[in-house]
């Protein structure tokens, strides 16, 4: 396989009549990588994932999976991929086993041992009718469907919705296991925290456009964190606020009742050095959070995250 990208989207655009869809998305996913697709609902995550399986046809641009055009060679692409839909619906009267038979009958390398192992780890009873299962248990059936066949690419649309924290950890283990064997995983979520521990890289989608893509740690470095500082002496407040506003890492400085709040982007070091000259009563600096980075409008629009 060498350096062929698992997924290569080039200027991919899908426009619908209304505003939904994706616009000019270019994204490479490497073999064996876990790519997280994050964005609010309607940002285009499902559109991108559904285009991968050729459920929808691109309006412009190209989309390749392991070097094969998704439009020209959809069967080969789907032969190497499995899929977990954003909303898992199967006929309610089918049992878990029947569901697997119905929705994986073309999968050649589907072993019963693998199915039983997955069901066991997820604590799922496949002999029960899907219609009788809770939302979380239905999602487990969907996970078995996506993970049981041997696949080079696993496409997961909101895989962790409906899973409790313990199962999310089981899920993360399953992802780690398949990627260790070289499988590529692309998964979407509207909640960054669900993705940021699993994904090697994340791609942030916003209104159908790719807002940022990179390693979680890199994006965190560029992301903003909220801070506040309270000098011991009231007369220092103005001086600290003034000096903070002079350095580029601090912004949105506000003074309220002897406490100075600010936003920090990038390195903290200059801020800490500046404060060292004063007597400080308290200093709070929030954890760098991608969620914060992602949902702060001006950070994205000014390109600071990108």
């Amino acid at each position: 396989m060498g350096d062929i990208a698992a997924i290569k989207a080039t200027n991919l655009t899908k426009s619908y009549g209304r505003s939904r869809g994706i616009e000019d998305v270019s994204l490479d996913v490497h073999p064996g990588e876990v790519m997280g697709l994050v964005g609010e609902s309607g940002a285009g995550k499902s559109t991108f994932l559904r285009a991968l399986l050729n459920f929808i046809f691109p309006t412009a641009g190209s989309l390749e999976v392991f070097g094969r055009s998704v439009v020209k060679d959809p069967v080969e692409v789907r032969r190497r991929s499995t899929y977990l839909p954003g909303e898992f619906v199967v006929p309610a009267r089918l049992t878990g086993h029947q569901t697997l038979r119905r929705y994986a009958f073309t999968r050649k390398q589907l072993s019963q041992g693998r199915i039983d192992d997955l069901a066991d780890r997820l604590k799922l009873d496949l002999s029960r009718k899907v219609g009788e299962l809770s939302k979380g248990n239905k999602q487990k059936v969907a996970l078995v469907l996506a993970f049981a066949p041997k696949a080079d690419l696993i496409v997961l649309d909101e895989p962790t919705s409906g899973l409790d924290p313990i199962l999310q950890r089981t899920f993360a283990g399953m992802v780690k296991e398949v990627t260790a064997q070289g499988t590529t995983v692309i998964l979407s979520s509207h909640v960054m925290s669900e993705v940021q521990h699993i994904a090697d890289r994340v791609a942030l989608l916003r209104d159908g456009k790719l807002a940022a893509v990179g390693k979680v740690s890199e994006l965190l470095q560029d992301s903003r964190r909220r801070g506040s500082v309270r000098p011991k002496r009231a007369e220092d407040v103005t001086a600290v606020a003034g000096q903070l506003s002079d350095i580029e890492q601090a912004s949105e400085i506000r003074v309220d009742d002897g406490e100075i709040s600010f936003a920090c982007v990038g390195a903290v070091d200059p801020i800490v050095k500046l404060l060292a000259a004063f007597d400080i009563e308290s200093l709070d600096l929030a954890h760098a959070d991608l969620e914060d980075a992602f949902f702060s409008d001006d950070a994205l629009e000014s390109g600071e995250v990108k």
């Binding site: 069967v75 199967v90 994986a104 999968r107 469907l145």
Partner: peptide
């Protein structure tokens, strides 16, 4: 979707 996610 799920049915046609197969290599068919």
């Amino acid at each position: 979707d799920l049915l046609l996610a197969q290599p068919l």
